[in-house]
């Protein structure tokens, strides 16, 4: 019986350590471009798209390239693996997830924060009268 309890405890502890390690490893840290340049890990950076600067989609590589300014006003070129995301044009802020290397932030995913349909509704309600 004791042996069984020992085995059970070992299995549970091993599972917990395994889970905790995977969690820490895959937790995508929130940071800025300055720090993103120094770490090799996948990070996420919040900021805004510099709409007035050049942005382009390279169909042959399926890469969308644009300039983004983080919350500390540092600008960086972001290369997204994929097309321009939905809602990108109207997003008030964006979050890019990826790694910084070779002079650009290579994003695998971009989340867009849109002006909520539920805020600033007073203009919407005026429109619908």
């Amino acid at each position: 019986m004791n042996l069984k309890i020992v085995i059970a405890v070992v299995v549970i502890v091993a599972a917990l350590i395994f889970g905790a390690m995977s969690f820490v490893e895959s937790n995508v840290e929130y940071t800025d471009f300055a720090r993103a340049e120094t770490v090799a890990k996948k990070v996420q950076v919040k900021g805004v798209w510099m709409k007035e600067k050049e942005a382009s989609f390279d169909a042959s590589k399926s890469q969308f390239t644009f300039i983004m300014k983080d919350d500390n006003a540092k600008e960086a070129t972001v290369v997204l693996e994929g097309a321009k995301p939905n809602n990108f044009d109207i997003a008030t802020s964006i979050v890019a997830k990826g790694r910084y290397h070779d002079g650009a932030f290579h994003a695998t995913e971009i989340l867009t924060k849109c002006p909520s349909k539920y805020n600033g509704d007073s203009t919407a309600v005026k429109k619908s009268l």
Partner: peptide, 14 residues
């Protein structure tokens, strides 16, 4: 202090 999500690879690994 700042909420952040895990990468989907976490779920696959575990």
């Amino acid at each position: 202090g700042k909420p952040s999500a895990v990468d989907p690879s976490f779920y696959v690994t575990t």
